[in-house]
Nucleic acid binder design. Structure first.
Length: 778
DNA sequence: AAGTAAATTTTTTTT
DNA sequence: AAATTTACTT
């Protein structure tokens, strides 16, 4: 394969050592992803391994997607009958459990629901309410953290209760809620994020048949970011590789930043104990960063004690020094960063720049500063699309129709839109459910059964419940009557939006807010169209996707400015990087100041941040910061002390911590006054398309004739001209958010009509005509 | 039961 | 400062 020649000897050896266990210790920027992808391609193209026998596991959908793309590019000319499975740990587990969970334990079925953290918190809140425990020091969130840690460690409620970490009373509460929580998930046929791994490992441990099946299926397994695996993920891998032992793990102990989630660096450090015949390859040449950036990163990480000694080196030039600025307050910091970005983009408009911060809460100031000077940015993380209330509401309807015992989903939508089912009625239903130890849905069935006992519910409430029940049952029957094959996922989603009365509720509100919510639901329908051709599992897959996909995954690699947390930046690289908020209590975070192990993790985090930079690195901090709406003085981060002073170029206005006492020797760079002139219009981000007119020219030039004949043929049922809106291919329309666009394609008719529209600056969008709120221009 | 006003809490990082 | 939760009114 030609790409082999471009690899260095170590990389090449990592690609070619295809049989047996292999540990690749890959330093930052050493071509790790390249090695994994070429290795997969090599297995398929050269070693003739059938693609479906290969499994590559990552932690994020972002990483999996990127890997998938790069592998398919490498294998471009090969016609493959199957594809390698490249996926995340959690998706892999869902896949295994959807097939075999019924072999594990009674109670759980294939149609189980996934509870995200939010859902879990609600369950815990409910448990606390039921036992009447109200203590501000034990929030549902914290309790979930404790339970989650216990579950991951394989501890039972009794073991937790015996632990010495809490007071006697608290121990009893933790144990009790733990048991209740697990029980409720079971009655709801629901699995939380931890369960996905736990149950899968337990299933593999219990059934040798299931184990054999996956061992035979996946004969070559690769794991990315191995330093972030926890003990369950290790067990999973060990089970899956029992037979072949063809396991290749890639990682860097210096980049282990998920200890708080149970990741155990020990897994990578002791790989050779788990796989005694393992071959070890070190990738130590960095191709990404300048020598100065690498030196800075090294000077931080070398303060850590527990680490494997690696010497990362580069043939790159020393490059510029590290740009440093101390600002008087956090607004000033944001303004400084925005102005620097503006300057860089004026000189070189296509530069990719990242602003990295420790916590999501820091993002707002940078967003505002960039917006003020009209620089477009792309923010990763923060509020996820799938976390919006309206999106979660509709997903809850779908989940409920799929699995009516899902109490969390039921609670979410039972009175949304309002049906007159308030606290009293809901309490009554919960009471019935509790007394029969059933789900709330079964309680509703009981309460609405004809001739059922006249329970605690008012007749008005019973009426509302009957209507609610019919709504859900109708949706259910839409999903499960697979008799007519044409039941696309998007139509079911539309049905959930319409038949629940949700759309009517939003339309009648008639505010900017409700309009934007409708637009978000339109986006949800758009997202669902991706699953329309997935067959009978389409809806299931769509719902799973919504549960397992965070916004961290929608990183636009072409955007010029990206805002994100350091965690989200792992695995990415940028010519210019700003690391902001280098203050004590922020970075390193206050919660890790008293614990040496956690402080070392913060240091690794700083290492990850620095090594994202290719050519230019900025480090900033401010002397005052608002926290909870209160201005408090901020101290410079201890990590600043750990940077080599001679590599720092101090750009602070006036005195800085560095020039005062931190360094003394650092020289001052000149501070050029900023130009007041501003860019007139925002720079478009991502794909840019031509004007509507240019697209129209292109479009009409190619297909005017066929369009005419097509519209003549379809005269009877689906004639676009007969549609009251008159929107057809070639029409120009106006969308509230995307502006003017050209209609390229129209599919379906009536309520299901889908339009493909090209909006300059926004690319092609698939819209449901019904929701899109389009104005026809010509 | 639903809407409004007041009180309380929030920020670590994420699948 | 903002968002969520609770308390209070109609």
């Amino acid at each position: 394969m030609e790409s082999l020649e471009t690899l260095n000897p170590q990389q090449r050896s990592a690609v070619e050592s295809t049989e047996g266990p292999l540990l690749v210790l890959a330093g930052a920027g050493s071509g790790k992803t390249r090695v994994i992808t070429v290795r997969i391609a090599q297995l398929i193209a050269t070693e003739q391994v059938p693609a479906h026998n290969i499994l590559a596991v990552t932690f994020t959908n972002k990483a999996a997607g990127e890997m998938r793309e790069r592998v398919s590019r490498l294998l471009d000319e090969h016609r493959l009958q199957s594809a390698p499975l490249i996926t995340t740990f959690h998706s892999l587990c869902v896949r295994i459990l959807r097939r075999d969970i019924e072999h594990l334990e009674a109670g759980y079925t294939k149609s189980f629901t996934i509870y995200d953290t939010d859902d879990s918190v609600k369950v815990i809140k409910n448990c606390l309410k039921e036992i009447g425990y109200d203590d501000k020091s034990m929030t549902p969130r914290r309790l979930l953290g404790i339970i989650s840690a216990a579950k991951n460690a394989g501890e039972t409620a009794e073991q937790i209760a015996a632990g010495v970490r809490y007071t006697d009373q608290m121990r009893a509460v933790v144990a009790k809620v733990f048991r209740m929580y697990e029980q409720r998930l079971r009655t709801a046929n629901a699995l939380d994020f931890d369960d996905l791994l736990i149950k899968t490992v337990r299933l593999l441990g219990k059934s040798s048949d299931v184990r054999r099946h996956y061992n035979e299926r996946y004969r070559y397994i690769l794991v990315d970011e191995y330093q972030d695996t926890n003990s369950l993920q290790l067990s999973l891998i060990k089970y899956l590789t029992e037979l072949s032992q063809n396991i290749c793990v890639v990682g860097d102990d210096a980049q282990s930043i998920y200890g708080f989630r149970g990741a155990d660096v020990g897994n990578i450090l002791s790989f050779e104990e788990h796989y005694p015949s393992a071959k070890v390859i070190m990738l130590e040449q960095n191709y990404r960063s300048t020598q100065n950036i690498l030196t800075a990163a090294d000077s931080i990480i070398k303060r850590n004690k527990g680490r494997k000694d690696k010497t990362l080196w580069t043939a790159n030039q020393s490059g510029e020094r590290i740009l440093y600025a101390q600002l008087p307050d956090s607004d000033g910091e944001a303004r400084f960063v925005a102005d620097e970005i503006d300057g860089i983009l004026r000189r070189e408009p296509s530069t990719r720049i990242a602003v990295l911060y420790r916590t999501n809460a820091q993002s707002r100031l940078f967003e505002e500063a960039l917006r003020r000077i009209r620089v477009d940015y792309n923010m990763v993380g923060g509020f996820s699309f799938y976390e919006r209330a309206e999106v979660k509401d509709i997903i809850a309807y779908l989940k409920l129709a799929m699995n009516p015992t899902d109490d969390v989903a039921l609670m979410r939508v039972i009175n949304t839109p309002a049906r007159g089912l308030g606290k009293t009625s809901i309490d009554a239903i919960q009471g019935i459910a509790l007394s029969r130890s059933s789900s709330m849905w079964e309680a509703i069935l009981q309460a609405t059964a004809p001739g059922g006992d006249p329970s605690t519910l008012s007749s008005r409430a019973v009426g509302a419940l009957v209507r609610f029940r019919m709504t859900v049952e109708k949706l259910s029957s839409l999903m499960f009557t697979s008799s007519d094959s044409d039941r696309p996922v998007s139509n079911i989603v539309i049905s959930a939006i319409e038949d629940s009365g949700y759309a009517a509720m939003l339309r009648s509100e008639n505010t900017d807010e409700s309009a934007s919510r409708l637009e978000n639901l339109q986006e949800l329908v758009n997202a669902a169209t991706d699953y329309d051709n997935d067959g009978p599992d389409g809806l299931r897959n769509f719902i799973d996707h919504a549960a397992l996909t965070s916004d961290t995954d929608k990183f636009d690699r072409n955007a010029s400015v990206t805002l994100m947390t350091v965690h989200a930046a792992k695995g990415l690289e940028f010519p210019v990087v700003f690391i902001v908020g280098l203050e004590d209590g922020i970075f390193p975070h206050s919660r890790s100041l008293n614990d040496e192990r956690e402080l070392e993790e913060e240091r690794r985090l700083a290492y990850v941040a620095i090594t994202r930079a290719e050519n230019r690195l900025y480090i900033t901090h401010s002397m005052r910061r608002r926290i909870y709406g209160e201005e408090i003085p901020a101290e410079p981060s201890q990590f600043l002390n750990e940077l080599p002073i001679e590599l720092i170029d101090d750009r602070s206005q006036g005195m800085s911590w560095l020039s005062a006492g931190g360094g003394g020797g650092a020289s001052r760079g000149s501070v050029a006054p900023r130009l007041p002139e501003r860019r007139p219009a925002p720079r478009p981000v991502g794909k840019t398309y031509d004007s509507p007119d240019a697209i129209r020219d292109f479009f009409s030039g190619r297909s005017t004739g066929s369009r005419d004949s097509e519209s003549r043929i379809r005269k009877t049922s689906e004639d676009p001209d007969s549609d009251p809106s008159g929107i057809k291919p070639g029409s120009t329309v106006e969308h509230p958010r995307y502006g003017k666009g050209l209609v390229l394609k129209r599919e379906g008719s009536g309520d299901g009509a889908k339009l493909t529209v090209s909006f300059p600056g926004h690319g092609h969008k698939k819209l449901m005509e019904k929701f899109a709120n389009l104005k026809v221009i010509k």
